[in-house]
Amino acid sequence: MIRLHKWKLLAIALATNLTILLSLAVGDIKPWASIDWLDIIGEGGVSLLAALWLVFTLNSRPTGSVTNLLSLGLALIFVGTFQDLMDEVIAIEDGLFLRGGIESTLMPLGLVVLTVGLYHWHKEQLLFTEQRRKREQDFREYRMQDTLTGLGDARFLKQQLEALQTQCQLNHQPLTLLLLDLDHFDQTNRRFGHREGDRLLRELGELILLNLRRCDLLCRYAGDRFAVVLPNTGELLAGQLAEQLTRAVEHFAYKTNQGETVYHSVSTGMATGADKSEDSAQALIERATLRLLAAKDLKAPRAA
C-alpha cells in the first residue's frame, strides 16, 4: 500500500498536520474542565472510521482514476472530521473560518467526490462482474472461493446447484451437472513438480471457461476435478458440450516453464436432473461422480 500510494498518504499527512498547526496558531488549548468528552469520543470515532475506510480502500486497489476519486473523497471527509475534533481540544474564536468553516466545506465536498468515485467504481465493477459471470453467476462469496484458481469451491457449487435447481424446476427446464477429471494428473505433478501442476489447473480453469456458455457455472470441485453446472440443458445437449470440453482439453498444448509441451485428457461424468425430479444437489453430485469413476475405469483399469 505504502509503495503504490505514497504521494496520497503524504498529502493526507501534510493536510492533517496543517490543520493542527493552523488551529494551534489561532487558538489556545482548552483547559481540562471545559472539554466535552462525549463530543471527543463521537467525533474522534467518526474521524477514526473515515481513516479506516481510507486504509481499506487504498490497501485493496491498484492506482487509477477511480482509486484517486475514492481516496480524495475519503481523505476530505477524514480531514474535515479531524478538524472538527481539533475544535473540541483547541478553543478558536467564533467568526474565524477555522471555527467550523473547514468542516462544513470539506465534509460536503468529500461526500460529493466520494459519490462520483463510487459511481465510477460501480461502472468498473459491472465490467468485472461480466468477466466473472461464468465463475459466479449471480452470487459472490469470497470465503467460498478456491485460492488457486479463483473459482468457487465445493461448498459454493452445492449452494449454487441448489439455487439453480429450484430455478430450473420452476421454469420446467432440465439441469445437468458435469464433472471433469484430469487423467494422470499425479504423473504430471511428479514429472514437472507441483508448481507446474498448480499452474496447469489454473490455466485449465481459464480454458474451460472460454468454452462455456454465458449461463453456465464453473467450479473447482477438489484437486483436479472441475464441476460445470449447465442450466436448461438436457442430456443430449450436455453430451455435446461435454464432448466439446473434452476436445478442447485434449488440444490444449500446455507449456511448462522449461518450454516442454504437455497434452492431457479428461474423463467426464454427468447427471441430469429432469423436470420435476426430486433430486437433491448431493444426489446429483453423487450420480455424476459414479459415472465419472466408471469412465475412468474404462480408460485405466483399477486393481479389482
Binding site: 465445493a154 477429471d181 499425479d186 511428479r190 470441485y221 477438489a222 484437486g223 483436479d224 476435478r225 461422480t289 459414479l290 469413476l293 485405466a300 483399469p301 483399477r302 486393481a303 479389482a304
Partner: peptide, 30 residues
Amino acid sequence: RRLCGLSLPWEYFLPDEAQHPEQYAVNWGN
C-alpha cells in the same frame, strides 16, 4: 498407487463425520 502403477481399491474408515466429502471423492475414491 505409484509403487504398483495402478489405483488400489483402498477402503477408508474415519472416526468422525465426513468433513470434506469432495476431497475424499477426488483423493481417495468412493
